[in-house]
Measured scan of single mutants.
Amino acid sequence: TTKIQIRLADGSRLIQRFNSTHRILDVRNFIVQSRPEFAALDFILVTSFPNKELTDESLTLLEADILNTVLLQQ
Rank of each mutant, 00 (worst) to 15 (best):
L14W: 09
I66L: 15
T60A: 04
L8E: 06
Q16I: 01
N51I: 09
Q33F: 09
V70G: 15
R13F: 13
N51P: 13
L67W: 10
I66K: 11
V46R: 10
A9P: 11
F49H: 13
S20E: 13
N51R: 15
A9H: 10
Q16H: 14
L8A: 04
F43T: 03
F38R: 03
P36V: 06
V46P: 00
R28K: 14
L41A: 08
V32R: 04
H22W: 12
N29Q: 10
A40V: 10
R7S: 10
A39S: 08
L25M: 14
F49P: 12
R35N: 04
V32M: 08
D65R: 09
N68Y: 07
F43W: 15
P36H: 00
Q74D: 14
V27A: 07
V27P: 09
D42I: 00
T60E: 07
L25Q: 13
S58E: 10
D56A: 08
L62W: 13
Q33W: 02
D65T: 00
Q33A: 11
T47M: 11
N51H: 14
I31L: 02
A40Q: 11
E53H: 13
L71W: 09
S58R: 07
L67P: 11
L72W: 15
N29E: 11
R13H: 13
Q74S: 02
S48V: 12
D26R: 04
I66R: 03
T47Q: 13
T21M: 10
I31C: 03
R13G: 09
T55C: 13
H22V: 10
T2H: 10
R35I: 03
L67Y: 06
T60G: 00
T21A: 12
I24M: 00
I66E: 04
D42G: 04
R13E: 14
E37C: 07
L61F: 05
L14G: 01
L62G: 15
L59Y: 06
A40K: 12
K3M: 12
I31Q: 00
L41H: 14
P36F: 05
L71F: 14
S12Y: 02
T69D: 13
Q73S: 04
R28I: 04
R17A: 11
N68E: 08
F18T: 01
I44S: 10
A9C: 15
E37W: 00
I4V: 09
K3R: 11
F38A: 03
V32P: 03
E63G: 05
L59C: 07
A40T: 14
N29T: 05
N29W: 06
I44W: 00
D56H: 03
K3V: 13
S48Y: 08
L45G: 01
N68Q: 05
Q5I: 14
S34K: 14
V70E: 15
V27E: 03
I24G: 02
I24C: 00
F30M: 03
R28M: 01
R35Q: 00
R28V: 08
P50Q: 12
E57S: 09
Q74V: 15
R35S: 02
F30E: 11
R28E: 06
L41E: 13
R17Q: 11
Q73R: 03
F30T: 00
N29I: 03
E57N: 09
E63C: 08
R13T: 14
S48D: 09
A64T: 01
S20F: 08
T2G: 09
Q74W: 09
K3A: 04
Q5K: 14
P50I: 04
Q74A: 12
E37T: 06
F30D: 10
T60L: 01
Q73M: 15
V32E: 06
L59P: 05
L71H: 12
Q16S: 12
F18W: 05
A39T: 05
R35K: 05
L14P: 02
A39V: 02
L25H: 10
F49G: 15
L61C: 04
L71M: 10
A40N: 11
E57Y: 06
A40L: 10
N68D: 14
I44G: 00
L8H: 08
A40W: 05
L62Y: 12
L25E: 12
S20A: 13
A40R: 11
L67G: 15
S20D: 08
R7I: 14
F38G: 06
N68L: 01
V32T: 07
I66Q: 06
P50G: 15
L25C: 14
I44F: 03
T55Y: 08
K3H: 09
T1F: 15
E37N: 05
I6N: 04
R13Q: 12
P50W: 06
E37R: 02
I44N: 03
P36N: 10
R17K: 10
L25K: 15
P36C: 07
D42W: 04
S34Y: 09
L62F: 12
L45D: 05
L71V: 12
D26L: 01
Q16L: 04
F18A: 01
R17E: 13
T69Y: 12
F49K: 13
D10M: 00
S12W: 00
L8N: 07
F49D: 13
I31R: 06
L54C: 10
D56V: 03
S58K: 05
D56Q: 00
T69W: 11
L67F: 12
Q74L: 01
L41D: 12
R17S: 13
L54I: 04
R35D: 01
Q33C: 04
I44H: 13
N29C: 00
V70A: 13
S58I: 12
L54K: 11
V70M: 05
G11Q: 07
S20C: 12
R23H: 02
S48R: 14
N51C: 13
T60S: 09
V70C: 14
R23Y: 06
D56L: 02
S58D: 07
G11E: 04
K52Y: 07
I15V: 12
I24Q: 02
S58V: 00
Q16A: 14
E63K: 00
V46F: 02
